[in-house]
Write a protein that binds this DNA or RNA. Sequence first.
DNA 1: TTTTAATCCTATTAATCCTATAGGGCAATA
DNA 2: TATTGCCCTATAGGATTAATAGGATTAAAA
Lengths: 136, 136
Amino acid sequence: MLSKKTKYGIKALIYLSKQKDGIPIQIETISKNENISRKFLESILLTLRKNGLLGSKKGKGGGYYLIKAPIDIKMSLIMRVLEGPIAMVPCVSLNFYEKCEDCPDEDACGVHSLMEEVRDSTLSIFNNKSLADLIK
Amino acid sequence: MLSKKTKYGIKALIYLSKQKDGIPIQIETISKNENISRKFLESILLTLRKNGLLGSKKGKGGGYYLIKAPIDIKMSLIMRVLEGPIAMVPCVSLNFYEKCEDCPDEDACGVHSLMEEVRDSTLSIFNNKSLADLIK
DNA sequence: TTTTAATCCTATTAATCCTATAGGGCAATA
DNA sequence: TATTGCCCTATAGGATTAATAGGATTAAAA
């Protein structure tokens, strides 16, 4: 299930996509327009900035803005930054791989190969969708 | 991320698939062979039984057994029973639908249609895999 | 130079969900 | 009727998520 963090983050990104390029938008503005808790949103925007999705400007007239064009922001990146691994099990995760301690042989594991399939199909969707595709 | 409940449940189902049909296997046996906490496994097998995946026999010589052949048990059912909705958001869930309280128009929502795609592709994998496919 | 308006950052709380355990009840078999 | 093993509910503890608090820092404007 999608966390609220991810949901709020995507909403904020969509909101920013609709603004004029480069003009900083304040947290408060997004918070009110999208009905998201001010402080919670603050921490979300911070991680989006730290992961290179947003730029910010401090002080009066400051705020957040998109660094790249919406069409150049893949959904797979957004999902990884906000939600974490796309795979359902760590042992098939490309970016967050971890071995199962209880599984002697990954290649022989039925769950492993099943989850690999799921990962591939999900990933191909997220890789082929950009933030721009969410705005219609 | 897949919960331990689901992981344990699948392991137990695989274990039962490998047994002779209809012979009840005790919780204790599965617990020891698959290294799963006895009591936790007990509650998992109970939900599998209540959802029509397993049968049980009480008393001496009792235990759990598969009701259907592994090939007739779709992974989509197993996932729904153990993990819950397959969709990432309730508003695109087929079996556990819930309206987003913050979204005025689902058809205009970009997240909605994106998650519908993800659901469809995941579901088509789970619908086309059975428990039998996990055993190789 | 002072005020004001913003983000930045860390810490903490509150709530929820997940994992695991406890203990007795109930049914079937021998 | 004793024993075996599932049935069921309750609950504890921990991890994660969601939200809040408060001040530090930076930049623009008065």
